[in-house]
Amino acid sequence: MLKNVRIALAVLALGLLIWAGYLGLVWAPADREMGDVQRIMYVHVPAMEMALLAMTLNFLCCVTYLFRPSWSMDSLAEAFAEVGLFFGGFGLVLGSIWGKPTWGTYWTWDPRLTSMAIGLVSYAGYLTLRRLVDDAERRAVWSAVVGIIIAVDVPIIYYSVRWWRSLHQMQSSPATVDPAMVRALRWNFLAFFALFVVFVMARYAIALARRRQEVTPPPLVLERAS
C-alpha cells in the first residue's frame, strides 16, 4: 500500500516537474534587467526553500526526540538532514551559476552565501557524526543535540539578506513581481515539494530499516542437543 502511494507520488512529482519546467523555460516572460538568465530563479529558489524546510523539520525532529525518544523520530531527523543537504547543495551550485552572468562571479563571501555554505558543512558534519557512532541510542541523542545547535544557522540564512544588505537580493514579494513569474515559481515550488516528499519518504524507510536491524537482537542459535 505504502509502496503504491510512493510510486503514485513519484509519478505526480515527475509530471509536475515537466509542467513546471515548461513554465519556467518557455511560458514565463524574460526579466527586464536579467533577461533569460532570470529563468534560473525557478529552480534555484524552490531548491533553497526545500533545503530550509528540511533543516527546520530536522530541528523539530531533534527537539521531539529528546523529549519523546523513538526510532521513527530519529530516522525522520536523519532523512530530513540528508534531503536538506541534497537540495541545499545543488541549490547553492545553481545560485553560483546564476551569479556568474549577473554578479560577474561564481562565488563571493556574501553573508547569504556564506551562511548557507556553513549550514551545508554543518549538516554534512551531522550526517558524518551519525556514521561514526556505533551505539544507536548514543548516536540518536548526540545527533539530536547537534541538530538543535546547527539549526541556529537557519534563521541567519533566511534573515541574512535583511540584516546585512549586500550583494544577494532580498526576498521578493508577489506584489512586486510579474504575475506570470509568480505562477511559474509556485508551480516549480509545488513540483519540488512533491519530489521532496518522495525523497523524504524513501530516505526515512532506509533509515528506519537500518535502526530496526541495529536494535533487533540476532536470532538465537539453538545448539542441537548431542
Partner: peptide, 23 residues
C-alpha cells in the same frame, strides 16, 4: 543602455540540466 543581460541561455540550460541530473 538598458543594463539588460543579453543571451545567457547556456547558463539556463546548465542550471536546468544540473537540476534534472541531480534529481
Amino acid at each position: 543602455q538598458t543594463g539588460r543581460i543579453q543571451g545567457g541561455w547556456s547558463y539556463v540550460w546548465t542550471a536546468y540540466g544540473l537540476t534534472w541530473t541531480a534529481f
